[in-house]
Design a binder for these strands. Structure first.
Lengths: 211, 211
DNA sequence: CCGCATCCTCATGGATACTG
DNA sequence: CAGTATCCATGAGGATGCGG
């Protein structure tokens, strides 16, 4: 564990726990689903294996992460504790704040479609409630995600095979711009390929109200 | 600036900008008010002066902080840009998340009453709307803060001399526990000294509904 | 004084190799 | 597969210097 700030302040104490390098990115991975050590290494390109082991130990000691035995016998699975899962709110806040950094596009950075499972609910969550339930597919970078929009909220996950009302195919930066409301479907003709019920797409990627 | 994560992910890019040590604590200080270099040093106990200078340069380059010339001539004042001020939401989220770390009390950590100016709105903000406008004083650690509760929200600032409906005197950990809703006024008799209109205090530090 | 820049030491991070 | 061990580069922390 790194050096404490030694300040009796909620932000400083939170950062004493999750402020070290890689910690919040590990939390991001576990917000998607519990994962094995190897899956974490794959989902965190650039992390050194000794650092991942150190950080998981720190987070476990702090009560953010817990080790579980996988259902199939003796494999170890890492998962967030209930308190650790409470980091979803500040993590989503940082993701929303980062929108100006993301619309520039990926540049040379590595990208995993699974990261959108955390980002899209953060960006779509504060939109007006959808008008009618629907399930969209998001095809990006060769992967297919599904966005299940109901009156009680929006859930994003890898596609599980269910029927889709529509499939949207676009680059990640376009999908993020649409979800954040800084792009709208009418301004991205030719960059977004919609297959199926376009109205269902518009119900989720709600274009900003014209001014 | 430290090494980039090299991930095209909103969280990773946000942390590329504000994830370095001390950065979010600098933002915390500037969320209270623009400040001079010396005030930042005072409000960030433990920071090395060269690090503060480095971080301010990084944050300015990234567009989070801007230097201004103070009104009285040639002094430099640091302030958040509009985008930088958008960090209030994730910072408040981390403060709410840190509640279990704060109710344990300060231990040996240093404390500044001014930090409550950021923490209290974060903890009080999701409470039910106050029933009637009031202005409270919070006396903690020899300092007096004021909490102005209106139907449109809650504002916390150093006391500016206006009339107060009531003054609450308690340790910082008690004030934070009350604001977070993990303590209520009836369980802290003897630890909280209320001077004035107790009903006005209860309207802000709303005790949790009995189960 | 204020607003930094320099210098030095040591803890932390990163890459790779290795082991149960 | 799930981590340790090792080595080196980098960054943090503290003291001090220095021009305005």
């Amino acid at each position: 564990m790194s050096r404490s700030y030694g300040q009796y302040c909620g932000l400083a104490r939170a950062l004493d726990v999750v402020g070290d390098r890689w910690n919040l990115l590990i939390v991001r991975q576990l917000l998607m689903a519990p994962a094995r050590y190897r899956e974490l290494l794959d989902g965190l390109p650039g992390v050194a294996t000794n650092l991942l082991a150190d950080r998981l130990r720190d987070l476990e000691t702090a009560g953010v992460v817990e080790r579980r035995l996988a259902e199939e016998g003796n494999a170890i699975v890492y998962a967030l504790t209930p308190w650790g899962a409470g980091l979803r709110e500040p993590v989503e806040g940082l993701i929303r704040w980062s929108t100006p950094l993301m619309v520039r596009g990926p540049g040379g950075d590595r990208f995993r479609a699974e990261w959108l499972v955390v980002a899209l609910p953060a960006l779509l969550g504060d939109k007006p409630a959808v008008r009618r339930p629907s399930t969209l597919g998001i095809a990006v970078d060769g992967h297919l995600l599904q966005v299940a929009a109901t009156r009680s909220g929006i859930a994003v996950s890898p596609h599980d095979g269910r029927d889709l009302d529509a499939v949207v195919r676009a680059d990640a930066s376009i999908v993020l711009g649409l979800a954040a409301g800084v792009l709208d479907l009418d301004d991205t003709r030719g960059l977004v390929d919609i297959d199926g019920d376009e109205a269902a797409v518009r119900a989720v990627f709600n274009p900003p109200a014209p001014s």
